[in-house]
Design a binder for these strands. Structure first.
Length: 644
RNA sequence: GGGCGGGUAGCCUAGCCAGGAUAGGGCACGAGCCUCCUAAGCUCGGGGUCGUGGGUUCAAAUCCCACCCCGCCCGCCA
């Protein structure tokens, strides 16, 4: 017999047993749902119910008396996976699994399903767009942003394994002010050719240009201020110190850009002209901005490919604008009662939608919280990011029935406004299927990373350092390997370590970046898990035989029990991770498996175990563990190596 | 001021949605383990007011209320 979810078979047995027993012993008591938990201690079995504590209220009995009665009437032979049932403690009902049967079911299921084991298909396969990364092409991807592609890629992989058709989209935000600033700087430098990685060079130009312009703007504002303004002064001081940094780091570029920008009477309006020109398909602006963005994107692709993160679609924001979709959506919005003119600008009344359609509770908002309105169109007629995102979202909904936007939690409000705009337009179904997967920031100790200020550690640097550190480790541990093999291993170890560190923590928690954290090659890290997988492979390779005559009743140690329970639960963990969008649940799970496996590895022989039936049973166990390591790591986009 | 998210040993973290038996791990620290399938490993040890105070409950890290601390958002930025 093969099960797609072995532990669930046992769980279902326990549930059926409890229902049957309740019918026999307490036919008149109603019990809406049966809860089964993992007991804290192996002596309490593998599943346990505390339902008697609750139900005892309806009888006059003590919970323990009820538990005794219920346990007594359960007909064990009817349940092949169940070894015994007993009442315990103050009123628990503990179920002990029939281990030999359970080993057989779990190991044979894994063996049969192999690359599919654990990947429980959803009842209904959906088309899902996962939009992730979408880093603006104005500076290299930094480690703060890198949490996005790693999480997004894992989510896409998990949903695909769940049986959905997943499209991974990258939204290239080339329409806003930032792209215009970098394009402006790039042109001022005479569209230089450069040797280094394009996104890195563009990041420098962007930061310097943006900084010079910011200093100008603030100085001007100070001059115009009638009285002393300490806030402005503070901002100016801040940017002046950024300018000093940049001048020291890039003296030639800085001076050159400063000179060129000085030649313009009003750099601000030049940039604004670019923004306007780009939106209205001015050929020169179009050519210039596309060129810069394209260059930067080449750099991104190089980095992301290296991290084994791929996309199905690269969506240019400008295409959405130029196609007329944005204007069309604006017209439709104007026809609703939720848009109003405020001076020269057009506003969207998000609160009115929430109130009018009675959505506040549904959106998790308190009734008296007033949602801020959203500016749709600037006084100069250009649109804003979220406005364009409305059109983009509807465009995505042409491809899929559900959209998951992997976007930082600082954009919660605008994502909410976006959703409300869909409601306002009458797309309630789409609005409900628009999911903001919000993740918390990655910070450097002491300060937040800032692209504009050039304060960041790039993903490239982190990957390089990780691979380098991994290389040193490989040389230390496996000096006999060929140079090529060492390089190959250090590559997947280093990159795996970085990805694992970013996916391991619950997405709602902030992560403070330290090298220590990311370059951890010990327990609770990708290398630790990869190593465990490699160990399993190594045993199987050395054994070089199939487990033809396993006797699962010989697997009697707690170490073996723990492994099989973990393996059997993988499908349930997977389903939860997929349904709740919690990739870190997979990371947690596979790390726990590695713990169990390494303890087993250390304590018990496999190949040399006697009798051969025990050796075969252990081989089957190791093989199943190998598959679950591999299948778990696949979900996280981390390589499962056969040796390292 | 309002909204959202977070607060679990020196540091990091799981468990919280669906309340149950002794709050799991990891790092760091101390003591051990390679004639034996890979020591990126294993064994043992100390280390906890689960932010604070109330409430609900037979039972609260978990649910409710209030408060405190940290972060983010409330822009004609994205």
């Amino acid at each position: 017999m093969v099960s797609i979810s072995p532990f669930k078979e046992f769980r279902d047995e326990c549930e059926t047993a409890l229902r049957d027993a309740m019918k026999k012993t307490y036919p008149h008591i109603s019990f809406p749902h049966i809860t089964l938990d993992f007991p804290p201690n192996p002596e309490f079995g593998e599943l346990s119910s505390s339902m008697c504590f609750e139900l005892a209220k309806q009888t006059a009995e003590k919970p323990r008396e009820m538990a005794d009665k219920i346990a007594k009437v359960i007909d064990i032979p009817q349940f092949p996976l169940t070894q015994s049932v007993e009442a315990a403690g103050g009123g628990y009902i503990n179920f002990h699994v029939n281990l030999a049967e359970f080993f057989r079911l779990t190991l044979e299921s894994a063996r049969t399903l192999d690359t599919e084991y654990g990947y429980v298909r959803a009842d209904k396969s959906r088309k899902i767009v996962v939009e992730h990364t979408s880093v603006n092409p104005v500076h290299p991807i930094h480690i703060g942003q890198a949490r996005n592609p790693v999480l997004g890629d894992a989510i896409a992989r998990i949903l695909k394994a769940r049986g959905h058709t997943v499209f991974r989209h990258y939204y290239i935000d080339d329409v806003g002010r930032q792209s215009a600033v970098i394009a402006y700087g790039y042109e001022k430098l005479g569209k230089p050719k450069f040797e280094e990685k394009p996104d890195h060079f563009i990041g420098v130009i962007y930061t310097i240009t943006s900084c010079i312009m910011e200093v100008y703007r603030l100085k001007k504002a100070m001059e115009q201020a009638t009285e002393e303004n300490s806030e402005l002064q503070q901002q100016l001081d801040d940017w002046m110190s950024v300018a000093d940094d940049l001048k020291n780091k890039f003296p030639k570029l800085f001076t050159q850009l400063l000179d060129e920008i000085n030649k313009d009477e009003d750099s601000e309006s030049k940039v604004n002209n670019l923004i306007r020109g780009y939106e209205s398909v001015d050929e020169k602006a179009k050519q210039l901005i596309r060129e810069v963005c394209q260059l930067c994107m080449e750099g991104f692709k190089e980095t992301l490919n290296r991290a084994k993160i791929f996309y199905d679609s690269w969506d240019w924001e400008s295409d959405i604008v130029w196609s007329g979709d944005v204007v069309q959506i604006l017209d439709k919005l104007k026809a609703t009662p939720y848009v109003f003119q405020l001076g020269d600008i057009l506003e969207f009344d998000a609160d009115k939608v929430a109130k009018g359609l009675n959505l506040k509770q549904k959106l998790g908002l308190t009734e008296n919280y007033e949602l801020p309105s959203l500016t749709l169109v600037r006084a100069d007629g250009t649109t804003l990011y979220t406005t364009r995102d409305i059109a983009y979202s509807l465009w995505k909904f042409q491809k899929a029935e559900r959209i998951i936007n992997v976007i930082g939690m600082e954009q919660t409000l605008s994502q909410m406004q976006l959703k409300l705009a869909l409601y306002a337009l009458g797309y309630a179904k789409q609005a409900e299927n628009l999911i903001h997967f919000a993740y918390n920031l990655v910070r450097l100790p002491g300060y937040r990373m800032s692209g504009r200020r050039g304060r960041y550690i790039t993903l490239d640097e982190v990957l390089n350092e990780a691979v380098k550190r991994a290389y040193d480790e490989v040389c230390k541990r496996s000096p006999h390997l060929s140079e090529e093999e060492k390089r190959r291993i250090s590559n997947f170890v280093g990159i795996g370590a970085v990805k694992y560190a970013l996916v391991e923590v619950d997405q709602s928690k902030p992560v403070v970046f330290t090298w220590d954290r990311v370059l951890d090659f010990e327990k609770n890290s990708a290398p630790y898990i990869q190593y465990s997988h490699a160990r399993a492979c190594s045993i199987l390779k050395k054994a070089s035989r199939e487990p033809t005559e396993p006797d699962y009743s010989l697997l009697a140690t707690p170490l073996e029990r723990n492994i099989v329970l973990t393996l059997a639960r993988f499908p349930e963990v997977f389903v939860d991770a997929a349904e709740s969008l919690r990739p870190n649940a997979i990371a947690d799970f596979v790390n726990a498996l590695a713990d169990n496996f390494n303890k087993f590895y250390n304590a018990l022989p496999v190949i040399k175990a006697e009798p051969p039936e025990l050796s075969d049973a252990r081989l089957a166990l190791v093989d199943a563990a190998r598959m679950v390591f591999r299948n778990s790591l696949n979900l996280l986009g981390i390589e499962a190596p056969e040796r390292m």
